[in-house]
Structure formats: structure tokens, C-alpha cells
Measured scan of single mutants.
Amino acid sequence: MTEYKLVVVGAGGVGKSALTIQLIQNHFVDEYDPTIEDSYRKQVVIDGETCLLDILDTAGQEEYSAMRDQYMRTGEGFLCVFAINNTKSFEDIHHYREQIKRVKDSEDVPMVLVGNKCDLPSRTVDTKQAQDLARSYGIPFIETSAKTRQGVDDAFYTLVREIRKHKEKMSKDGKKKKKKSKTKCVIM
């Protein structure tokens, strides 16, 4: 069974824990209790493949930012979460993405942009803004509501699919490099 290491990042209060708990335990946590770091595991079937999701729910508070490099190193894919009623959390996505790329030393890291709290009427981040940002990053965008469960499975499952595509691409690139290195030079 394939294991996928997913990391949920975003500013404090955007609903990272609520999304994760909704996926794992099928219930909505409405009281806000700032996370330092929590880890969850769940076995699911995605596109006919049974897999184990190892999900790291991270601290959004700035005082825990020193811990970010460590979990970013171990993560295979990242859910970059903002709240649709919090423009600052949307603007912060850029910083999370840049930090992930720096730590992973790669421009090509599996990510999904997630606009959470889409059940709320007080939207300050337009869907088109988020779609445009995701398009500019070359990553999928999904709106979710941890409260109603809308888009929750889709967000995590899409990230797994992005990781699969990335692994497939990397193995193809690896095979191309191996083929090239088999060419021999004969000096007579």
C-alpha cells in the first residue's frame, strides 16, 4: 500500500485542523484551538488504489514558523489553505509557496490551493482571484467548507493525484537520464 505524506499549511484560523478532522473523523470542530502540530493517518481508496494518507496539520501562528522547514522537508505534497473571508490569509499563500519551493529546492512541488469556509456569506476573496492565482502557479484550486464537508475529500484526493503525477514524471525523467548515460565512448 502506497503511503502519501501530505502537509496542510496556511495562516492561523483558516480551518486547516477543521478540514483535516472532517476528512479523518467526519465531524466539524467549530471551536478554535490553535494547533502546534498534529499528525493523522487514514486509509482510503483513490482511483481504485488503496493508500495510506499521513497528514500533518501544522501551526499557522507566526511564533511556530521555525518548525516549518522541518515538516516541509518531509512532506510530499501540500494543501495551501486560505479562508475566503480573510484576504490576508490569501496573500500569505505566496509566502508559504515560496518557502516550500526553497526548502524542497524545487520549482515543481505537488500543491493544491484550497479556499476554505465557502459556506460563509462574508467572502472577501473572489473565486476568480483564487483561480487566477492557482493557474499562475500551475496547481489545482478547490473551494471547501469544513463545516458542510463540501470539497473536503476532493481537496485531499486531488493532492494525492498531483503527487502521483509528480512521481510518474520524475521516474520518466530518471529513465531518460539513465538511457543517456548508457551511451559509451570508444577510443581507438
Rank of each mutant, 00 (worst) to 15 (best):
T2M: 08
T2V: 07
T2F: 08
T2C: 10
E3Q: 11
E3D: 13
Y4G: 10
K5D: 03
K5G: 03
L6Q: 01
L6A: 02
L6C: 07
V7Y: 04
V7E: 04
V8T: 01
V8S: 02
V8M: 06
V9W: 11
V9A: 05
V9H: 04
G10Y: 00
G10L: 00
G10H: 00
G10W: 00
G10K: 02
A11T: 08
A11V: 12
G12F: 03
G12T: 05
G12L: 02
G12M: 04
G12W: 02
G12E: 07
G12A: 03
G13M: 06
V14L: 14
V14T: 07
V14G: 09
V14H: 06
V14A: 12
V14N: 14
V14I: 10
G15Q: 00
G15I: 00
G15V: 01
G15A: 00
G15E: 00
G15T: 00
K16D: 12
K16H: 15
K16L: 15
K16F: 00
K16W: 01
K16T: 15
S17A: 01
S17L: 00
S17R: 00
S17P: 00
S17W: 00
S17Q: 00
A18M: 06
A18N: 15
A18R: 03
L19A: 13
L19T: 15
T20M: 08
T20W: 15
T20S: 11
T20G: 10
I21T: 13
I21H: 15
I21K: 05
I21W: 15
Q22N: 14
Q22H: 10
L23M: 14
L23H: 13
L23G: 14
L23C: 14
I24E: 03
Q25P: 02
Q25M: 15
Q25I: 09
N26S: 12
N26H: 10
N26R: 10
N26P: 03
H27E: 11
F28A: 05
V29W: 07
V29A: 12
V29M: 08
V29D: 04
D30R: 08
D30V: 07
E31F: 08
E31K: 12
E31H: 06
E31Y: 09
E31I: 07
E31L: 10
Y32R: 02
Y32V: 06
Y32G: 06
Y32F: 14
Y32N: 06
Y32H: 07
D33W: 04
D33Y: 10
D33P: 15
P34R: 14
P34A: 13
P34Q: 14
T35K: 15
I36P: 03
I36Y: 02
I36N: 01
E37L: 04
E37G: 03
E37S: 06
D38W: 02
S39P: 03
S39T: 11
S39Q: 06
Y40L: 09
Y40V: 07
K42S: 07
K42P: 02
K42M: 08
K42Q: 08
K42A: 05
K42D: 05
K42F: 04
Q43D: 07
Q43K: 14
Q43G: 09
V44L: 12
V44E: 09
V44N: 08
V45H: 12
V45R: 12
V45E: 12
I46N: 08
I46E: 10
I46C: 09
D47S: 06
D47A: 06
D47R: 05
G48Y: 05
G48W: 03
E49R: 09
E49D: 11
E49M: 06
E49G: 08
T50D: 09
C51Y: 14
C51T: 09
C51R: 05
L52Y: 07
L52Q: 12
L53Q: 08
L53V: 14
L53C: 07
L53K: 05
L53I: 12
D54H: 08
D54N: 08
D54P: 01
I55A: 15
I55F: 13
I55S: 15
L56Y: 12
L56S: 13
L56M: 14
L56N: 08
D57S: 00
D57A: 01
D57Q: 00
D57I: 01
D57Y: 00
T58W: 07
T58F: 02
A59W: 07
G60R: 15
G60D: 15
G60T: 15
G60Q: 14
G60C: 15
Q61T: 10
Q61P: 14
E62I: 07
E62F: 05
E62W: 06
E63Q: 05
E63R: 03
E63T: 07
E63Y: 04
Y64C: 10
Y64V: 08
